[in-house]
Simulated scan of single mutants.
Amino acid sequence: MLLAQAAWVAKTVHLLPEPQGDRDGIINPEGEMTKPSTSAIRFVAVGDSLIGSSGVTDQSLGLTPLMAQRIANATGKSVQWSTHAKLGSTMRRVRYRFMDELEDDIDLLFLCAGTNDVLARRNLDDWRDDLSAVLDIASTKAKRVLVASSAQAFRSPRIPGMLSEEILRRIDKQTEMSKQLCASRNIAYIDMAHAPLDINEEFWAS
């Protein structure tokens, strides 16, 4: 039954493409785009479709510039931000593709991937190896690292109940391992998979 449901979802459910728009910029507390500055906070986000802004109409409406604006508001400083992401990315792609793209001296590095690893049924040993390597590289490139768990894809109205339960079971195991790996390196971890989000029909992109 699980295989049948998974096959149906693979054929009928598709993520929206990544929108057009700039994947980097610099923004001040007033919400204005400014010129590069050596005093600006360097904020970099790396990951999957959530970082790639799948679901909105332009990159400027995505998660990375939104977080950059919040950081600017909280610190009173300009924030120079950039996004490194691709639809469907696993932590292995983050490890072997995106981490090589990053420069050093990043002030805050935000990592968000994992849902695609679960959907691809990658095993926990592979997840441990890839996330461990990414965290070690990130620690050499950024002053602060922030890691987010898988998203709540299991709550999608397009995913049947039995398959949803299996996805959540796999996310639970992935989340627990991720917490341990981050804690051992004193890296902050956000459990988005179990956050009490108010999800209704308007939450989901078309």
Rank of each mutant, 00 (worst) to 15 (best):
105 D>K: 14
142 A>G: 01
128 R>G: 01
149 S>L: 00
132 S>G: 15
81 W>S: 02
124 L>V: 06
119 L>S: 10
74 A>K: 13
115 T>Q: 03
82 S>T: 01
122 R>F: 10
154 F>Y: 14
99 M>L: 03
124 L>C: 09
135 L>R: 01
135 L>N: 02
115 T>I: 09
93 R>W: 13
90 T>K: 09
102 L>M: 03
155 R>T: 15
75 T>L: 02
112 C>W: 13
163 L>H: 05
82 S>N: 14
112 C>T: 00
125 D>P: 03
115 T>L: 03
110 F>L: 14
118 V>K: 00
136 D>A: 15
150 S>Y: 06
88 G>N: 07
118 V>H: 01
83 T>M: 15
73 N>K: 12
108 L>F: 07
151 A>R: 13
137 I>M: 09
99 M>D: 05
122 R>I: 12
106 I>V: 05
114 G>M: 02
97 R>P: 06
126 D>Y: 08
103 E>W: 10
124 L>K: 09
107 D>L: 01
124 L>Q: 05
113 A>Y: 00
106 I>D: 03
107 D>I: 03
100 D>L: 08
101 E>G: 06
139 S>C: 14
81 W>T: 05
139 S>W: 08
117 D>C: 04
134 V>E: 07
161 G>I: 12
123 N>S: 00
125 D>A: 09
106 I>M: 04
97 R>M: 10
165 E>R: 15
161 G>D: 14
136 D>K: 05
71 I>F: 02
102 L>V: 05
89 S>D: 15
93 R>A: 11
119 L>N: 08
85 A>L: 06
106 I>N: 02
72 A>F: 00
158 R>P: 05
148 A>M: 09
78 S>F: 01
116 N>F: 02
116 N>C: 00
118 V>D: 07
151 A>C: 14
122 R>V: 05
114 G>I: 04
151 A>S: 14
89 S>W: 13
141 K>G: 04
143 K>C: 04
84 H>A: 05
128 R>S: 11
72 A>T: 00
142 A>Y: 12
152 Q>S: 07
107 D>M: 05
117 D>R: 03
132 S>M: 05
86 K>S: 11
80 Q>T: 03
105 D>Q: 11
73 N>H: 13
120 A>R: 08
147 V>T: 00
95 R>M: 10
134 V>R: 07
101 E>P: 08
70 R>Q: 15
133 A>T: 12
90 T>M: 07
155 R>H: 12
139 S>M: 13
138 A>Q: 03
158 R>V: 09
70 R>W: 14
157 P>K: 00
75 T>R: 01
95 R>P: 13
136 D>E: 12
150 S>L: 04
114 G>P: 03
70 R>E: 13
96 Y>L: 13
126 D>T: 11
121 R>S: 10
163 L>C: 00
